[in-house]
Amino acid sequence: MGLVVATKAFFKLMFNRELSDSFQQLVDGKALPAPKTETKAVASQPKPKPAAPPKPSRNDAISLLAALQREARLIDLVSESLGDYSDEQVGAAAREVLEESGKVIHRMFALAPISSAEDGSEISTPESFDPAEYRLTGNVTGEPPFKGQLAHHGWKATKCEVPAWNGSSKANHIVAPVEIEIG
């Protein structure tokens, strides 16, 4: 029985390119690609790109820098020597860059103030609190809850969605590629 199946399989694999590719992948321990939907348009083209296999991950910090440069040119701005320019020149460039940087940061982190109170208003900390969430300044004495004036409402990220990196490990540290204009 096993031999019959094996022989059948042999001829099937021998003469069916797609099947044999799948078999090879199976042997190699790779997941099978999803079955293709056959269309005329696709038939003449090479096979679909496989799903991105897990790659050596890139540090999210690099991905964030790359996004800030790509969408807002923030790296260009902070790398330039400010002393060479007038406030007006810096301002003109910074307005654009800052607006776009803000969009990137808010899209990825959806930043929200921790405290909804107005600057300067009286607020008090909860009975027990995490010092990471409330920083007390000035004349700090006694036991919580602490009362005082709001100096800064704080920020927290309500999400953290930095783009996933799919590129090669060689390009792991590339923040922005070289750009070449072909005439």
Binding site: P33, A34, K36, Q45, P46, K47, P48, K49, P50, A51, A52, A164, N166, G167, S168, A171
Partner: peptide, 16 residues
């Protein structure tokens, strides 16, 4: 661009 897999998606996708 096609060869260095920089256009791969989380699923099998168009080759070019």
């Amino acid at each position: 661009e096609t060869n260095n897999q920089s256009l791969d998606l989380p699923w099998p996708s168009e080759p070019r």
